[in-house]
Amino acid sequence: MWRQVLALIVKELLAVLKDTKSRFVLIGPPLIQLIVFGYAATFDLNHVPVAIYNADTSVASRDLVARFIGSPSFIEVATLHSERRIKHLINARQVAMVLVIDRRFTRDLYLHRPAPVQLIVDGRNSNTALLILGYANTIISDFDASWIAAHGGQPPMAVLDQRAWYNPALLSRWFVVPGIVALLTQVVTLLVVGLSVAREREAGTFDQLLMTPMRQIDILLGKGLPGLLIGTVEASVVILAAVWWFAVPLRGSLPALYFGLMLFVTAVTGIGLMISSLAATQQQALLGAFLFMVPSIILSGFATPIANMPTPVQDLTLLNPMRYFLIIARSVFLERADMHSLLPQYWPMGLIAAFSLAAAGWLFRKRVY
């Protein structure tokens, strides 16, 4: 049995690796996606275009302006001498924020009264606006602390001491790149497995395969294990890139990560075999794979928190294996997670893997007879 399965596995690997287009699909797009997501998919804001309207022009106000301009988060694109251009700059999207310093700014500081500073932010993208306000408030708070230390005054009764656990520098790359392990592994595994049976049907060799002494379970294993192997290798390459190229710390247990990876790849392999069993051509298999991939990525928590989704949609995410592996990958990378702490993520993926493989076997038999 295993000699026949091994021969089919070798045949599948050769069919994928000897074809130039297949090799490109396995190597090119994952590398491009890794670079794009690793560098471009970020929640950090840098070089936000701002306009400055400083009606005070004193040393104190110029110091505050310098703190904004010296920050990597902001870049000055316009200096205003009146409020008339503010509306035009915001409407035309030439600036995302306007800093307005009142002419009484320095006088109020010396009188130990609240000194008015206005931040006008483009609120059409609410998430970006909130980030901009957070950065600006940090700069103003630092200015307040420096002014009180140098000139005296009543400090605030409550002082905010901010600490970010697991990601002290709040680098979004540390959050995004571990998720790419799940994303690229699913994409590659689903494509390789999803096209396997469809390729045989399209080439007219599937009937010949059925006439061999191999059982249906042997054929399923021979079609599924190459995708599992390729998906695991692909994930290992992304993990190495995350640690050595993107400098994301791998703090947890490597066996815990790979155990979750094997369950995840097995579940995706079962789904790929289901798609491949239903598809008559490679084009149908490709469309079926993307029909599954897009919702699974959206419902995984890769970009948007699952807790923010409506309750029925949150329940739907429980059927998505990528949801569980995302938690495993991020927990192992950032939270020092071990196998014991990840048990609540392992067993649902195991159930999904068992169901998808059983369903793939049933669909395979239905299509044969």
Rank of each mutant, 00 (worst) to 15 (best):
A169H: 04
I328E: 10
G152E: 12
R3P: 13
G194D: 10
V117D: 04
R84S: 09
A150H: 08
S277P: 08
L250G: 14
L6C: 05
A15Q: 09
F175N: 09
V248W: 02
T281N: 01
A280W: 02
R107P: 00
L89K: 13
D315Y: 15
D102L: 02
M214Q: 05
Y324L: 02
K21F: 11
I271T: 12
L195E: 07
W165D: 04
T79L: 12
L184D: 00
A198R: 06
F74Q: 03
F290W: 10
D218Q: 15
H88R: 15
F264L: 12
E76D: 05
Q314I: 09
M339Y: 09
A15L: 15
V65E: 15
Q282N: 03
I27E: 00
F74C: 11
R251P: 00
I271Q: 13
A129G: 05
Y324G: 06
Y53G: 08
N46P: 00
L229V: 12
Y53Q: 14
P156K: 09
A289Q: 01
Y369K: 10
A66Q: 11
P255N: 09
S61C: 06
G301F: 01
A289T: 15
V117A: 03
N308P: 00
V159G: 03
P305H: 10
V77L: 11
A267W: 08
S196E: 08
L99D: 03
T128G: 08
T266Y: 00
G222P: 08
A241L: 13
V25E: 14
F355E: 01
P116W: 12
G123L: 06
L119W: 03
H88K: 15
S236R: 01
A182Y: 03
F259A: 09
D161H: 14
L351A: 15
G270E: 12
V294Y: 11
W2V: 14
F292H: 01
L31Q: 01
L210F: 11
L209D: 07
E202D: 06
Q345P: 03
V243H: 06
P295Y: 00
F105S: 01
W165I: 08
E83H: 09
R84M: 06
L254A: 09
V65Y: 04
F364H: 14
K223N: 08
G38A: 08
Q154I: 11
L291I: 05
I275L: 10
V5C: 06
A198K: 06
R215L: 07
A354W: 05
A7N: 07
P344Y: 10
V188A: 00
S61H: 05
Q208K: 03
L225H: 06
V265F: 02
P310R: 03
I35P: 01
A136D: 07
A78L: 02
Q282V: 06
L14W: 01
R93Y: 13
M157D: 14
V36P: 00
G288E: 14
N137R: 14
F246P: 00
A279R: 01
W362T: 08
A303M: 13
F246A: 02
R85I: 04
P116N: 12
V368K: 11
T138H: 09
G153L: 10
V176I: 15
L170A: 10
R113S: 13
W244C: 02
